[in-house]
Design a protein around this nucleic acid. Sequence first.
DNA 1: TTCCTGCCTGAATGGTTGTTCAGATGAGGA
DNA 2: TCCTCATCTGAACAACCATTCAGGCAGGAA
Lengths: 135, 135
Amino acid sequence: MAKSHSVNTEPAQLPTQSTDAPVCAESLVHLDNVRQVQPEVLSTEKAQRMAEFFSALSDPHRLKLLSALAPQELCVCDLAAAVKMGESAVSHQLRVLRSQRLVKYRRQGRNVYYGLADSHIAALYREVAEHLKES
Amino acid sequence: MAKSHSVNTEPAQLPTQSTDAPVCAESLVHLDNVRQVQPEVLSTEKAQRMAEFFSALSDPHRLKLLSALAPQELCVCDLAAAVKMGESAVSHQLRVLRSQRLVKYRRQGRNVYYGLADSHIAALYREVAEHLKES
DNA sequence: TTCCTGCCTGAATGGTTGTTCAGATGAGGA
DNA sequence: TCCTCATCTGAACAACCATTCAGGCAGGAA
């Protein structure tokens, strides 16, 4: 997933002391601005986790699966039929969604029923739909 | 970006008529469930657009950039310093964020100042942070 | 005009992801 | 026990993405 290459940049410290004159090796940096903003910058850890979460949502097939699960629980073979994918492919994608706790599942007989994990997902979905509408 | 391979599956029609007996070529599908859910399934088009949007957010470097832009506007070189990336890399990533209208920018003298595009982004961010907190 | 600076872009490379096929697991029924 | 069905998993290949380096472009100053 979003293990996009290496991220070895910690929030980190700057020369620590005043004078907003150009000090940085490259470019004319506004040191005061940079210092002001740095505490707000996500830690590499958190950025990584969040990136993995979004990465799970960054595939049209997985989004279709989620939209199919919005109204009700479905088992894997029903899901496959609903979004017109192979069952193996669905299974693989469901694993990704599970790993980010976007879906929950329960076994009933020989079927496994999947559903949306919680309400944040729906809220998030609406937020994005809103943003995209204003294209 | 999330142009993840080909997506050639339209919502599509099923045999159209009743009897929830197994009809599908593979597996024992619950036809009634499938039909009930199908209208809710995202169209390929919308799924694609949404996937591209999430894909823009699925990289830790870009998330760091966004978090740095949350409190205030910054020019490219300041951004680069704040998240400790090269300016070229920042520029590439900003292009991705621009393409999804996650950031806006304005030129002032020789600097280009970037900022968050709108309030949906902040709301979305909070939603996800909430979800991840409940790990 | 010429130089310098801040930013953007194109191309090449190495890592990552999604798909497919084959086989494995596990539950239910005979 | 054996068989079948629903689902999961592993491996391999093709497509995609992020990074780097090099160079290009536009604004400001002299």
